[in-house]
Every structure is written in structure tokens, then in C-alpha cells.
Design a binder for these strands. Structure first.
Length: 158
DNA sequence: CGGATTTGACCTGCGC
DNA sequence: GCGCAGGTCAAATCCG
């Protein structure tokens, strides 16, 4: 969607007043060199619903879905953030020769989703988009990534 | 054997 | 209304 994501990158480096700014250089075990948070899209979507076709159920549930996009320089597609994910889909996106993977948190009642996409321009960069908020503790502690995740929670504008 | 992945079909929103 | 693009389902399959 955002062809020049570096613009967003600069924007976040130059302006942290808007809440989101995360930049670290782990450069260690996970081969993830740098990462930053793109602006959280706080959008109100009627979401859910799907199926149940005919029945004219009105979509009163207007919970806002928050999406957080990270661009991560990593050699692996899926970043283990400590949660348990189940892949439920994979689609090829236009303008991108790499497929996008869709994951869902396997914790019961936790509807957090995430999608992982690799940039065509830089196949060494993956974009991970989180959707929703976890309401349960981390399933599996990871090395320094856990600490990063923890910071992310701090920055979340609940 | 149970849970996670794979993969094509299906659904929906949107632009023409 | 049709077709495309993105998102999800679900059956089959894989793997510990």
C-alpha cells in the first residue's frame, strides 16, 4: 500500500510526539536488524459479521480495530513474538511477487490477527501487521524479543 | 493422534 | 452487473 515506506520511517524518527516510536538494533540472535512501528491505523470497522448471509443482522458492533504495522529487516518471514499463531491463509498480492500470509492467535477467545508480507523491492524486509490486542499472557517466552514486545505494549494507545 | 499448514474455493467490497 | 483484489474458510495433508 505504502510504496515509500521510508517516508513513514523518517516521519517516525523525526516526530515521536504522535505516540509511536520504536527503533531498536538487536542485531543478535533473530537476525532482525532494525524495526519500526508504522502509524497505528485506528479505524472503526464493523468487522466480524461475515457469513450468516441472509439474516439482516445489523452490524451494531462497531469496535475499532487497531492495526500496527512493523517493517522488519529479517531473513525469516515469521517473527516469533512469543504468541502462538496458526496460519489460516496465504494470498498473492498485486505489485508484490511474494505472497502474504495470514495468521491468527490460537488462544481461545483471542481474535488477534496478523499478516506477514515481504517487500518486492527488498526481499530482506518483511512487513508484519498486527490487528487487535492480545488479552492473555505470552505463550512462549523468547529471548530479547519478549522485551521488545513488552515495549510495544507500552506504546499502545489504548 | 492432535494440532498446525497447505491450498483452492468462496465471499465481499469497490471501481469501472 | 462484472471483474478484480483482498480476506477467510475448510478439507486434506503434514509433522511432532
Amino acid at each position: 500500500m505504502e510504496p515509500n515506506s521510508c517516508q513513514a520511517f523518517n516521519s517516525f524518527h523525526g516526530d515521536s510526539s504522535n505516540g509511536l516510536l520504536l527503533d531498536w538494533k538487536s542485531g543478535s540472535s533473530r537476525s532482525a536488524e532494525s524495526c519500526f512501528i508504522q502509524k497505528p491505523e485506528v479505524e472503526e470497522t464493523d468487522n466480524q459479521i461475515m457469513k450468516s448471509s441472509s439474516v439482516g443482522k445489523q452490524k451494531e458492533k462497531k469496535i475499532r480495530k487497531q492495526r500496527y504495522a512493523f517493517e522488519t529487516r529479517s531473513q525469516v518471514d515469521v517473527l516469533d513474538d512469543g504468541y502462538r499463531w496458526r496460519k489460516y491463509g496465504q494470498k498473492a498480492v498485486k505489485d508484490n511477487k511474494f505472497p502474504r500470509s495470514y495468521y491468527r492467535c490460537t488462544h481461545q477467545g483471542c481474535n488477534v490477527k496478523k499478516q506477514v508480507q515481504r517487500l518486492t523491492k527488498d526481499e530482506s524486509v518483511v512487513v508484519t501487521t498486527y490487528e487487535g490486542v492480545h488479552t492473555h499472557p505470552i505463550h512462549k517466552p523468547t529471548d530479547n524479543f519478549e522485551q521488545i514486545l513488552n515495549q510495544m505494549h507500552i506504546y499502545k494507545p489504548f
